[in-house]
Design a protein around this nucleic acid. Structure first.
Length: 753
DNA sequence: CAGCCTCGAGTTCC
DNA sequence: CTCGAGGCTG
């Protein structure tokens, strides 16, 4: 710190000339670099946090006025923001994970047990876990190359996050350069950005009216500032606890890896413990919960991880969560409030969903004014199987209700105070007609949901379907979000998906004027929207299929079908061909149902599957249709329910016409072939006999991770049979079919290539 | 045929 | 994020 700096800082930024600014930027950068070294390397800061923050803000402010002076390593450099004022996207080199949740000690015991059986460990074989507080902030991935921080990304959806490098550089706990010997060439450190209670309180006092609801929101809002100068002024902190890509392993255990992060210059949580038994894990959870209020920052549970990294990698991943980690949550916070009224929303599939409008109440740091009521049984005090919930107490308008946020997010009703119920409060009567279109609302047998039968004539269903069509996993059209869709639907501009693609040509200057009168619309935004729509005239098969919003057909099933049929035309032809089979099976099933009811009434025993089989045999189905149907349900993940729903959508003349209308505007892209690199990608593998070096579940997970399909029985489609000792009929069948048979050692050699 | 696992559909608040 | 239900496996 030189006096020179102090003198310069007295000049308002607006009054600086270029030369003075340049000089000061150099001086400030040097001072900050020195302070950083003191703080990170020597753990002996020579200046106070407040002074440090002041220097940093000053630098950022000057650089904002003289952008040419910004240095590549400057805290204020806005490499994160793209020219249009949004954050750039970053694809994580390794997925950022989310964690499986547990709410009881029993869940923790199950978790440990599942791991033991997956790894085939005996009950007394040693198995250690780390336990550490789960910080309630937002996760961040920091990429270091040759020890220098080069990139910081938010979690996003786990695959793609936002580039917040400039903002991360302003956080003091995040070193710009790693310290110590043996720094890996590439190292991605992951951890949590958070704000302490004290800093949060001070910030809210400053911000006054536009204050944040809780430290988590304050941290999120601060990190996601487009202007890094603002982030720099916010007191954010960071704990490191995980990693992504590394050019060399950090350690052999979770515990040592985190210790290593401390040595590299990160803050790590001091409460982390190593536990050797389930009891120790739960005891640690209790200890941490007792300290919760005095920690000075928010935590919402304890995270357990298998300590041995070799075991972690054997355990591997499920779809979105690793098998080797668990978040043990603290009990949810509760609050009482008054339920003012119950309203009904209509979803894309026609589902009537009741929502509680509440007198606003703070629960877990957030003001809640709505809560989901699921369905009519839930209101009446029963779950789907007819069991009583809340002691069988129903929910009525005007009741006092206890609210919690399930998973700290979705507000739900935990209980009702009957003592405070007004004597003239009547039980809630669930509507039997749609509040949006008046059509009858019916409940299918065995279904917990009541649905509007209006189909496309129901405006609520139509607009929800359109919202789904433009949603992220479907067409993902920039500038055409839920709100814009609603407006354009209300004004009659868009009634069905095809209308989106004729929007531009129907839009004369006069109409634009109309739009401009509306909030937030101008020539530029209309132009951008039309350009975004144009870009989506090329669309992946699976996105189009998913976007149609056919019941039971989600993102994954759409991908499966795209892979199965390869081309849209092929799928349409197959569905048309299979239609007679669908109709025949449906009337056969109905006849079987009838037959069975009749039999039961007559006091005879009757089994549905048998009745069905007989009825199906009696209903004649053209061989070609039957073949098309069987081919459809042979597709991965597609069973009779999904198949019939899909068939119905394409066979309904109005729906089919709407589908063909939109398809006419599109170039439908065939799905990319499955990952073809690696020896076993794309192959179908069957395991049999005893595997000695890994369990069955482990082998399956590994094969699938490498792009193979694992089947249960040997057929002509099988490519490889992995036979351990004791293999029986499967090995014989494989030999008969000429399927390649290998032993476990050969399998491991293939799988570890 | 039962139990397990994954997917689909619905929801809140910022 | 959670619940219910559909599909697959043993």
């Amino acid at each position: 710190m030189s006096e020179n700096n102090n003198a310069l800082r007295e000049l308002a930024v607006e009054d600086l000339d270029a030369a003075g600014a340049s000089q000061e930027v150099a001086a400030l950068s040097a001072a900050l670099a020195e302070a950083n070294l003191d703080y990170h390397r020597d753990d002996a800061p020579k200046i106070s946090d407040a002074d440090y923050d002041r220097l940093k803000q000053r630098l950022a402010a000057i650089e904002a006025r003289f952008p040419d002076l910004a240095r590549p390593d400057s805290p204020s450099l806005q490499v994160g923001a793209t020219p249009d004022g949004r954050f750039g996207k970053i694809r994580h080199s390794q997925r950022m994970l989310s964690l499986e949740n547990a709410f009881s000690g029993e869940d923790v015991g199950d978790f440990v047990q599942r791991i033991r059986s997956f790894l085939n460990l005996s009950a007394n074989a040693p198995l250690a876990f780390t336990a550490e507080p789960k910080i309630d902030g937002l996760s961040l991935s920091l990429r270091y190359e040759k020890g220098e921080l080069v990139q910081a990304a938010t979690r996003g959806d786990g695959e793609v996050g936002e580039n917040v490098t400039a903002n991360a550089r302003t956080i003091r706990d995040i070193p710009a350069r790693l310290q110590g010997p043996d720094i890996p060439d590439i190292l991605e450190i992951r951890g949590e950005v958070y704000m302490s209670h004290a800093d949060f309180a001070a910030l809210n006092a400053d911000e006054g009216s536009r204050s944040f609801a809780n430290p988590r929101n304050a941290a999120a809002g601060s990190l996601r500032q487009l202007d890094a100068v603002i982030t720099a002024a916010r007191p954010l902190r960071f704990f490191a606890y995980a990693w992504g890509e590394t050019s060399s392993p950090l350690a052999e255990t979770q515990f040592e890896a985190v210790a290593r992060m401390g040595a590299l210059g990160f803050q790590t949580n001091p409460l982390m413990r190593l536990c050797r038994t389930t009891d120790e894990m739960i005891a640690t959870w209790r200890e941490i919960e007792q300290q919760r209020a005095s920690l000075g920052y928010d935590i919402d549970g304890v995270v357990y991880k298998v300590n041995d990294l070799a075991l972690q990698s054997r355990l591997g991943m499920r779809a979105t969560t690793p098998r080797w980690a668990l978040a043990h949550k603290f009990p949810a916070e509760l609050a009482w409030t008054r339920l003012e009224r119950i309203e009904i929303q209509v979803g894309r599939t026609g589902a009537l969903s009741p929502v509680a409008r509440l007198e606003p109440v703070t629960v877990g740091g957030v003001v809640v004014s709505n809560a989901t009521l699921h369905n009519e049984d839930y209101i009446a005090g029963r779950d789907s199987s007819g069991e009583a919930i809340r002691g069988g107490r129903d929910i009525r308008e005007g009741d006092w209700v206890q609210i919690y946020r399930a998973g700290d997010v979705i507000p739900k009703i935990a209980d009702v105070d009957l003592a405070k119920r007004s004597p003239d409060a009547a039980p809630y009567v669930f509507p039997d007609s749609c509040p949006a279109c008046g059509s009858p609302a019916e409940r299918e047998e065995g279904d917990s949901v009541r649905r509007c039968t209006g189909g496309l004539i129901c405006p609520a269903q139509a607009v929800e379907k359109l919202k789904h069509f433009v949603s992220r996993a479907a067409f993902d059209i920039e500038g055409l979000g839920a709100k814009v869709v609603e407006e354009l639907f209300a004004d009659g501009w868009i009634k069905e998906p095809a209308d989106i693609f004729t929007l531009a040509e129907r839009f004369g200057p006069g109409q634009l004027q109309q739009l401009k009168n509306r909030e937030g619309w101008g020539e530029k935004s209309a132009e951008n929207l039309f350009a975004a729509i144009e870009r989506r005239r090329e669309i992946a098969f699976s996105r189009l299929l998913f976007g149609l919003g056919i019941r039971h057909l989600g993102e994954v099933a759409a991908q499966d079908l795209a892979r199965h049929y390869q081309s849209w035309d092929a799928m349409e032809q197959a569905l048309d061909a299979a239609r007679p089979a669908v109709l025949a099976h449906r009337s056969a099933d109905a006849a079987a149902e009838e037959e069975r009811r009749f039999a039961l009434a007559a006091g005879r025993r009757a089994r549905l599957t048998e009745a069905r089989a007989t009825a199906r045999a009696e209903h004649e189905v053209p061989a070609q249709a039957q073949a098309a149907w069987e081919d459809l349900i042979a597709a991965d993940g597609i069973g009779p329910v999904v198949a019939m729903s899909l068939s119905d959508a394409f066979a309904n003349p109005r729906e089919r016409a709407a589908i063909d209308r939109v398809a006419a505007f599109l170039t439908i892209l065939a799905p990319e072939a499955r990952a073809t690199d690696g020896a076993i990608a794309g192959l179908t593998i069957v395991f049999t006999g005893t595997l000695e070096r890994m369990t069955r579940a482990e082998a399956k997970a590994r094969a699938e991770a490498l792009g193979a399909k694992v089947a249960g029985s040997v057929s002509a489609k099988t490519d490889i049979l992995v036979a351990g000792p004791g293999a029986g009929s499967k090995a014989k069948k494989a030999a008969d079919l000429g399927v390649k048979v290998i032993d476990e050692d050969q399998w491991i050699a293939m799988a570890t290539q």
